[in-house]
Design a protein around this nucleic acid. Structure first.
Lengths: 152, 152
DNA sequence: AGTGAAACAATAGAACT
DNA sequence: AGTTCTATTGTTTCACT
């Protein structure tokens, strides 16, 4: 992957804020013509630096009122691949990270209600993935952004 | 907030997959004219069901190679508001959730390198937010999606 | 709420530096 | 890599149902 220059980063940042900005608008802010911005955007998408154009939807409006995090230690019998394939294919799974420390995986799920959390745990148990697990329900989430700036 | 009907949910889902679809394209898929889709989209944005149009950027391409999760128990002296305000204002913080269980907050950060994790922890310590904490570094993340379907 | 048409704005491509 | 010009495509508004 080619490294992004400052202009690429500005463009990506502007799009992260508002992906409906016109090429002319972005061009003005970064000092390029609309066509040049278009070329760069295509390149960023082709290279995978921009994975996709999407909307930030309020999960609650979609009927997904509960966010929960599961710390899981996999059963020794379980192949990691079987678990990650299951997680990736499951509609409730928003994120699945292989992490350092006491636990193997941190899984973030979004479900309708607490019964949805229970159902998800039951699925994991039924498939014998779990050696042990710990569940944290999000009571509130003061911050949740798709984009993190690179100022650090 | 008005409840979303099936068409609204379809539109939101289509936009989450690809926010650059034309009104005509979306209209065909949901059985409406471009104008009607436009009306609904405006309403969804106005109501906050669609929070914004954005891009899903690869953090690595932006120079943020490390994702880490911090479980934090706040110091008794710390006001929760002071902590959430700090987290929300910090550029490294991608998510901050108030959670049930042994820990008060789960914080997801994205930083350049491991030194960035250490720097963030130092900041928390310097501000005397921490009673105790636990850090998990993401070794790999098999799944990370902005959008979770409502099929559960 | 939705349609269809016309006016307007944005994007994509070509020719060129 | 970038610019400008233009054809094509997409969006917005409005009168009407």
């Amino acid at each position: 992957m080619t490294v992004m220059d400052t202009t690429d980063r500005k463009i990506t940042g502007l799009l992260a804020e508002d992906a409906r900005r016109s090429l002319a608008d972005i061009g003005e802010r970064v000092g390029l013509s609309p066509s040049a911005v278009n070329d760069r955007m295509r390149r960023l998408v082709a290279e995978g630096a921009i994975k996709r154009f999407t909307v930030d939807a309020d999960p609650t409006a979609l009927g997904l009122s509960v966010t929960a995090f599961l710390l899981v230690a996999l059963d020794y019998e379980t192949g990691e691949e079987a678990f990650t394939a299951f997680a990736d294919g499951h509609p409730a799974v928003a994120e699945c990270h292989h992490v350092t420390g006491e636990w193997s995986y941190l899984v973030k799920i979004r479900v309708r209600d607490l019964a949805g959390v229970e159902a998800f745990l039951s699925e994991l148990k039924a498939r014998r993935f779990l050696a042990r697990s710990q569940t944290m329900i999000a009571l509130s989430t003061p911050t949740e952004r798709a984009f993190t700036s690179a100022e650090n």
